[in-house]
C-alpha cells in the first residue's frame, strides 16, 4: 500500500506536476515575447556597409568563440565555467523529459554521463556564488534574486545528480519537485535571461553587421 502510494506520488510529480509547471513556463515566455514584440522598433535604414544576416549569425555564434571578445579572451576560465555550467543545465533540463518520457534511453551509462555533466555545473555554480559573495565589483550590482537564483539552481543541480546517480524514488521525487518549483520561479527571475538573449544577440548582429563591424577581417588584432 505504502509503495503503491509512493509510486502514485512519484508519477504525479513526474508527469502531472511537470506538465503543469512546463505549461506555465511556456505561457509566461509567450507573454514575455509578446511584451517585447508589441513595442516599437526603430529600424536601421541607412545603406548597408556589411551583411546584417552574417552579423546575426556571427552574433549568435560568438557564444562558441571565446576569442571573439576581449572579455572572454581575458577571462578564459570564466568562459569555460559558463560553458560547463550551461551544458550541465542543459543536461539537467533534458533529464526532466527523458526520465519520464523516454526511460529506455536512460541507460546506466547515459545517466552517469549526465550526472557527471551536472556535477560539473554544480561545482561551477559554487564558484559563481562564491565570486558573487566575495567580489566587490559584483556585490555592488547583485540583487537578492541573483543570489537566490544561483543557490536555487545549485539545489536543482544537486538533486539532479543524486537522482541520476542513484535512481532512487526519494531523490527522483526531490528532483521533480525542485524542477517544478524551478519552472514556476524562472519567469520571475534572472534565469529567464535566455528569452531576451535571442533578441539581444539578433539586435546586436543586425546593427553591427549592417555597419560592417563584425566580419572577421574587421576583428581586432
Amino acid at each position: 500500500m505504502g509503495a503503491a502510494m509512493e509510486d502514485s506520488f512519484l508519477r504525479f510529480v513526474k508527469f502531472d506536476l511537470q506538465i503543469v509547471a512546463l505549461s506555465w513556463l511556456v505561457l509566461a515566455y509567450l507573454i514575455k515575447i509578446y511584451q517585447i514584440l508589441r513595442l516599437p522598433h526603430p529600424r536601421e535604414v541607412a545603406p548597408r556597409k556589411g551583411s546584417q544576416e552574417l552579423g546575426v549569425i556571427y552574433s549568435y555564434a560568438s557564444l562558441f568563440f571565446p576569442w571573439s571578445m576581449e572579455s572572454t579572451r581575458h577571462h578564459l576560465w570564466r568562459w569555460f565555467e559558463f560553458a560547463i555550467y550551461h551544458l550541465g543545465a542543459g543536461a539537467a533540463i533534458l533529464a526532466t523529459f527523458t526520465i519520464p518520457f523516454a526511460p529506455s534511453i536512460m541507460t546506466r551509462h547515459i545517466r552517469l554521463a549526465m550526472a557527471v555533466l551536472v556535477a560539473g555545473a554544480f561545482v561551477m555554480g559554487i564558484l559563481k556564488l562564491w565570486r558573487r559573495i566575495l567580489s566587490p565589483d559584483l556585490r555592488v550590482v547583485s540583487t537578492p534574486d541573483d543570489y537566490f537564483s544561483l543557490a536555487g539552481v545549485e539545489v536543482f543541480f544537486l538533486f539532479t545528480v543524486m537522482a541520476l546517480a542513484t535512481g532512487s524514488s526519494g531523490w527522483m521525487k526531490a528532483y521533480f519537485i525542485t524542477t517544478a518549483a524551478f519552472l514556476f520561479y524562472v519567469p520571475f527571475s534572472k534565469i529567464s535571461h535566455y528569452v531576451q538573449w535571442f533578441f539581444a544577440r539578433a539586435f546586436f548582429g543586425l546593427r553591427f553587421g549592417r555597419r560592417g563591424i563584425l566580419t572577421p577581417k574587421r576583428a581586432e588584432s
Partner: peptide, 19 residues
Amino acid sequence: YTRNMAVASSNLCVHCGMC
C-alpha cells in the same frame, strides 16, 4: 521604451560582471 530598450533593461543582464 522601444523593443531594444525593453531587452536591454530587462533580466537579460545577469550581472555576470564580464563587462
